[in-house]
């Protein structure tokens, strides 16, 4: 039951985060959404490692244990998410300074994907 609840939350978080990336125009909001979606994916892995009435995978803890492998993977994933986010935020600060906006559409206008035709 616990795992199901957490899985439902994880899927909800992924959906919510992606929705934020979709509808917001401000880059900081988009990054917040990505952060939440990434957190959802991490929770997804942890919840799938959980078993009914299981304790942490420590020696000396009796009874059934959770799967330690996904938890180990998730530790890595959390750090990677933080690293990418820090880089993204400093780019946002850079663009705010040079382009004076954090709005995606204005940024697209000032940096056209296509080179102007001669």
């Amino acid at each position: 039951m616990e795992a199901q609840g957490a899985l439902a939350l994880a899927i909800g978080l992924v959906g919510l985060g992606l929705w934020t990336v979709l509808v917001r125009r401000n880059l900081v909001w988009k990054l917040l959404g990505l952060n939440v979606a990434g957190g959802g994916a991490i929770l997804f892995l942890v919840a799938l490692a959980h078993r009914e009435k299981a304790g942490p995978a420590l020696e000396g803890v009796p009874g059934p244990h959770v799967d330690p492998l996904p938890q180990a993977l998730v530790l890595t994933a959390i750090v990677i998410h933080f690293a990418v986010l820090a880089l993204a935020l400093v780019y946002v600060i850079f663009l705010s300074e040079r382009r004076h906006t954090q709005d995606v559409r204005k940024l697209e206008e000032t940096c056209p994907t296509r080179w102007p035709e001669s």
């Binding site: 995978a57 020696e59 330690p68 180990a72 890595t76 933080f82």
Partner: peptide, 26 residues
């Protein structure tokens, strides 16, 4: 005594090294 630590720093140290690099490079 901690299975997660044994995996992160032992069996899957290869991943962890890259993770350390990800952090350092960010």
């Amino acid at each position: 005594k901690n299975a997660v630590a044994a995996i992160v720093l032992g069996a899957r140290l290869w991943d962890t090294l890259f993770e350390v690099l990800v952090y350092a490079l960010a």
